[in-house]
Computed example of a mutant assay.
Amino acid sequence: MRAVVFDTFGPPEVLRVTDLPDPEPGPGEVRIRVRAAGVQPFDVGYRQGVMTWAPVNFPQQLGQEYSGVVDRLGDGVDGLQVGDAVLGSTMFNGNAELLCVPVPNAVRKPDRLDFPTAAAFVAAAQTASGALAELSVDSDDVLLVHAAAGSVGTLAVQLAGIRGATVIGTASPANHDYLRQLGAIPVAYGDDLVAAVRATGRTPTVALDAAGGQAIAQSVEIGIAPDRIGTIVDDKAAAELGTRVVRAGRDPQRLAEVIALAGRGLLTMPVRAYPLSDVVAAHRAVESRHGRGKVVLIVEP
């Protein structure tokens, strides 16, 4: 099978596509023929070597999100069949033509979603829904989402709207019409953010930070209670300012709930697609921290 690997930590150029032995499913596992695979900031950090806790065995694979079709069953598998379309989370092997996962980790793909879009939902769905739950966002809230045009922000805006909350989203001016389409009140990030938020006439009661930098300090300055400011990217600032880290763990059931909403047409996720062979360009796109929605690798057309 073809798979993305790297032989040393470094910039995107350390990535390459190579041939590896086909994996075989163990008991309770299924093998997935991957159609699309997400690329996320975690993958960038892993490739750079900043995830010091994560095991590495060069040449090392990477990738945490997939969508594809079951093509082989391990012993004792119940509930999935060859040919079923699924999506889900994995660890360090998602950017490949084949991977094996435990059956409980595979969520059925709705017919309405194509494979790239399905892969794009995986991490963002679990992160955004978990963060909103931890922050107890409800219909009485005005939620401030920092980096609202990214993949997590895109879903946080929509999921909060479904809960009945009012949402203010930060993004570059080029993405303000996009945020309006999602249902958010757009404001530009930067040094003038606090004034821009106040100019909306809405007073945020809760904040979700997917940007880092000034975002947490600005949320505090706006007057949001520290225990209702959550970040998924800036643990250091959270510790310094007494706010929260809301990096919810993986949960196939929570993923399935969000995917069900997407399958009903209630959620959208823009996809920026790259062929597997262009994985270097895909990583550069994620590192830029610009652009709407999710970067996805097309593994099989």
Score class of each variant (00 low, 15 high):
107 V>L: 04
107 V>W: 01
107 V>Y: 09
108 R>I: 07
108 R>L: 11
108 R>N: 14
108 R>V: 11
109 K>G: 06
110 P>W: 08
110 P>K: 06
110 P>S: 03
110 P>M: 04
110 P>A: 11
110 P>C: 07
111 D>M: 12
111 D>A: 09
111 D>L: 13
111 D>W: 10
111 D>Y: 12
111 D>S: 12
112 R>W: 00
112 R>K: 01
112 R>P: 06
112 R>I: 07
112 R>T: 10
112 R>E: 09
113 L>Y: 11
113 L>V: 06
114 D>K: 08
114 D>Q: 06
114 D>V: 01
114 D>P: 10
114 D>M: 08
115 F>I: 03
115 F>W: 07
115 F>R: 08
115 F>S: 00
116 P>D: 08
116 P>V: 09
117 T>Q: 10
117 T>A: 09
117 T>R: 12
118 A>E: 00
118 A>D: 00
119 A>Y: 01
119 A>F: 00
119 A>M: 00
119 A>L: 01
119 A>I: 00
120 A>G: 07
121 F>N: 04
122 V>I: 02
122 V>C: 01
122 V>Q: 04
122 V>T: 03
123 A>V: 14
123 A>H: 11
124 A>H: 09
125 A>D: 02
125 A>S: 03
125 A>C: 05
125 A>G: 03
125 A>M: 01
125 A>Y: 01
126 Q>A: 09
126 Q>D: 03
127 T>E: 08
127 T>C: 12
127 T>A: 09
128 A>G: 07
128 A>N: 02
128 A>F: 06
128 A>S: 10
128 A>Y: 09
129 S>K: 15
129 S>Q: 15
129 S>P: 11
129 S>F: 10
130 G>W: 00
130 G>M: 04
131 A>N: 04
131 A>P: 07
131 A>W: 03
131 A>I: 02
132 L>Q: 08
132 L>A: 10
132 L>T: 10
133 A>R: 15
133 A>E: 15
133 A>K: 13
133 A>Q: 14
133 A>M: 14
134 E>K: 10
135 L>V: 02
135 L>F: 01
136 S>Q: 14
136 S>L: 15
136 S>K: 14
136 S>N: 14
136 S>T: 13
137 V>E: 07
137 V>F: 10
139 S>W: 12
139 S>F: 13
139 S>K: 12
139 S>C: 11
139 S>P: 12
139 S>L: 08
140 D>L: 12
140 D>Y: 14
140 D>V: 13
